[in-house]
């Protein structure tokens, strides 16, 4: 068994070779964005270079210029708001819980969705250095923080060929719950 694939942002066509279930380690600058930041970017444009960029669904705790805790938030809330980012060149999304069929289709041939383990805020921050912030007026949780990752362990949840391990697990659960119906 081979170790995790190492990737560095900005990401390029190497993401197209990833398959759902692959473990990777991500380095380089990543931008946090939750609901409010997505709305702002839709309205005012993307404040960073989107080509090859990675978006992290996260509302971190920042203190004294450092990332204190930065686990993922539920990605599904952003299901309807990722299209314009992917069209502008964003190659990766990170979050928890997976995303819907819309995003799965938008990612086809373009990018991937990485899952990071929910609740693992201390592990996350031990791999992170704070680099900057956009939209600070949105508040700590909703601002876009530029964070440098150092080999954060992630798993590919949705690949660029439509493979989706969340969807596979959901289908299994549909069958298992079917026996109660």
């Amino acid at each position: 068994m081979t170790g995790p694939v190492r990737l560095t942002t900005p990401l390029g066509d190497e993401v197209l070779r990833l398959r759902a279930g692959d473990r990777i380690e991500l380095s380089g600058i990543v931008y946090t964005a939750r609901d409010e930041a997505h709305l702002r970017m839709q309205k005012d444009g993307i404040p960073f270079e989107p080509e090859g960029a990675v978006i992290y669904h996260c509302g971190p705790v920042i203190g004294n210029g450092r990332v204190i805790a930065a686990g993922p938030t539920t990605s599904a809330r952003m299901n309807g708001m990722e299209g314009f980012l992917i069209d502008k060149g964003v190659r990766g999304l990170i979050g928890k819980g997976g995303m819907g069929a819309t995003v799965r289709n938008q990612l086809k041939g373009k990018g991937v969705y990485f899952a990071f383990t929910g609740g693992c805020a201390a592990l996350a921050s031990s791999h992170m250095t704070l680099k900057g912030v956009f939209y600070e007026d949105l508040g700590m949780a909703e601002a876009v923080w530029a964070i440098e990752f150092d080999r954060l362990p992630l798993v590919v949840g949705i690949d660029s060929a439509g493979g989706d391990i969340f969807d596979a697990a959901r289908k299994q659960a549909d069958v298992a719950f079917g026996k109660y119906r």
Partner: peptide
């Protein structure tokens, strides 16, 4: 790993 780091650094395990 997260549980171990939180304990070692004395920081909350989840944000």
């Amino acid at each position: 790993k997260n549980i171990e780091i939180a304990e070692r650094l004395g920081v909350p395990m989840c944000q």
